[in-house]
Design a protein around this nucleic acid. Sequence first.
DNA 1: GCGACAAATGAACCTCGGTTAATTACGGCG
DNA 2: CGCCGTAATTAACCGAGGTTCATTTGTCGC
Lengths: 175, 175
Amino acid sequence: MSLFQELMVKNGSNVLLEAGDHAFMQGDSDSNIYFVQSGLLKAYYIRSDGKEHIKSFLPEGSIIGSMVALVDGDPCTFSLVASEPTVAIALPYKVLADAAQSDNGLANALVGFLGTYGKRKEQREYQLLSMSAEDRFALLVETMPDIAGRVSQADLASYIGITPQALSRIKRRLK
Amino acid sequence: MSLFQELMVKNGSNVLLEAGDHAFMQGDSDSNIYFVQSGLLKAYYIRSDGKEHIKSFLPEGSIIGSMVALVDGDPCTFSLVASEPTVAIALPYKVLADAAQSDNGLANALVGFLGTYGKRKEQREYQLLSMSAEDRFALLVETMPDIAGRVSQADLASYIGITPQALSRIKRRLK
DNA sequence: GCGACAAATGAACCTCGGTTAATTACGGCG
DNA sequence: CGCCGTAATTAACCGAGGTTCATTTGTCGC
């Protein structure tokens, strides 16, 4: 476990979520960082036309928070919901950022976390810009094989950025 | 100018680029952070099928580097090229990260930079997942009006994720 | 095993953007 | 001014994915 994760366990508070419970909703002011201990979270957007788009799946070991809410205290741009019974640890980012002002080890742990986060988003941007829906599905199955079995087809499709029907078509093509 | 930017100016080295010159190419091991002083850089991917996709435009004041190269020393996942004569300041990330181990101010400056980077990527992810090509074009014109005039239609289209022909159609629809 | 509800699939039709190729601006520059 | 190369536009056709709705497959409770 990384230094950063140890810090979260030591200083954070436990959050228990049943499937369907929200950690926070789009528009909330929630500047907590969440560290998933067990279960599965989904981060998703609600668009102006009411449609949902899944941003990411967050299984055990994931760390998540709305970056704009963390950095600027703006309202969260997405919602975070449990799709299985989940145990997570929550810690206000401000606590970390403030403590980092005087604790160099913590500041560097934060650097590590933010660097990893940026790296993940860079990869996601590449996938969205440069890969077809079919490629993104194949990649998801390859890199997160367990997730593909744990969530509904509708959620998988929403993550890839297409409708369940289109995903069904893709699966048929692949066989 | 932020503390982080001042640090870059003080410790970095100048890089002069003519239009068309590359700071680094996809696949290079370049773990420099670049701070654009004047001019305009383009960051772009080359896909396996040879097509280009523009990741971002970087006018004066921008800070950029390949996060996977910075964090892990992996090969850069994109190329960085000047689309106008450009002056930038380059500084190896490792220098920063190492110095941050013992310099708390620097560590926190890094936290600020990485937080801003993550925030931008979060917004970009939202745009790619939840907005149509037409919406993304309107947003680009609104948020970076100067860029729309400084680069070719083909580059604009590539940034939005469509072909120049499709962008031309969109412009006609909007009139 | 059976009924009921949700999830997944399938089919028919439509729209948007890609592809290819032709046509029309729009600069330099001799 | 006329020539030429590039960028931008337009048109015709195609295919992937969206939309809507019907059908099938699961799965849970009884």
